[in-house]
Structures are given as structure tokens and as C-alpha cells.
Amino acid sequence: MIPEFILFWATAAVCVVGALGVVFAPNVVHAVLSLLVVLFGIAVGFFALGSPMLAAMQIIIYAGAVVVMFLFVVMLLDITEVLPSLGGARGVLAVLSVLGAVALTFAIVAAVTSGGLPAQADAPGGDAATVGWGLYTDHVILLLLAAILLTAAADGVVGLTQRRESR
């Protein structure tokens, strides 16, 4: 059994390095692969936080579907056409962006480290049965709304591409 603190710091390091890779990678493919690293890191985090079910979903849905979709689109687009616009903000704008992001992060960190966390309780189960029970009974409205959203979005995306063929 790995001590918890080693697990946390390893996960944190992997996630932060991966996240910086997403933002600063000069090549879109590298950015997508960096996101994959972050997603795996977060999956480990979910596992450490007693949610094996979510950890599995994270890898199946994100790594298996979303990231592959991103890669597919990167390959589909003509990368040489898109590359010139890969640059970042310059000058004052870049400084402001960094300042804004850092300020927000510090505000959140300062707030959450100031305490105020409610009392700790026994961890809930994190297996498929527990999560599924919550999803299909108490929180079924979330499932319903998400289902409509996914259906409508799928129909819309088909419409977006279909129109091109008819022209």
C-alpha cells in the first residue's frame, strides 16, 4: 500500500505538469496528449478519494472517447493551415492573462485554506451500485436533463454537418 501523501504529491505533480503541457505545448497533438496525462492523474485522484467507479468512468469516457475525438479532429484538420494561428497572446495582454489567472487561483486557495470546511463524515461507498442508486433515484432529474441535452446535441451536430453535404 502506497502512503497517501506520496500518492497525493505524485498525482499533483503529474496533473500540474500535464496541465502546463496543455497550455504551453507548441503543437496541438502534444496539448491533447498532455490533457490525457492530466485526465489519468485525476482518475488516480478519484481512486484515492474512494471513487473507483468514477475513476473508471474518467478513463473510459474522457480518455477513451473525448480525447480520441479531439485527436481525430486534429488529424482531420489540415494542421499546417491552422499552425500559424497557434500563437499566444503578446505583450500587455499576456501579462494581464497571467495576472488574472494567478489572482483567481490565489483567491480560491486563500479562501479554502482559511478553513470553514464542515465536519468530516464517513466516506460514502464509491462503487457502481452506490453511485448508480443515487443517479437513478434521488438525482434522476439530472439524468433526465442530461439525456435530453445529449440527444438534442447529437441531432444538432448531425444537422451541422449534414447541411454541408446538401449544398
Binding site: F8, V16, A31, G45, G88, L93, G100, A101
Partner: peptide, 20 residues
């Protein structure tokens, strides 16, 4: 850790100039 990841994401949104 989540706040730091959120901040890095925000930096990407603000500073990068590629929709992807």
C-alpha cells in the same frame, strides 16, 4: 490542487489563441 488546475485552464483560455 483543483484550484491550481482551474487557474492553469483559465490561463490557457486567456492566453492561447487557438480554439482547439
Amino acid at each position: 490542487l483543483a484550484a491550481v488546475l482551474f487557474g492553469i485552464g483559465l490561463l490557457g483560455v486567456l492566453a492561447r489563441r487557438n480554439a482547439l
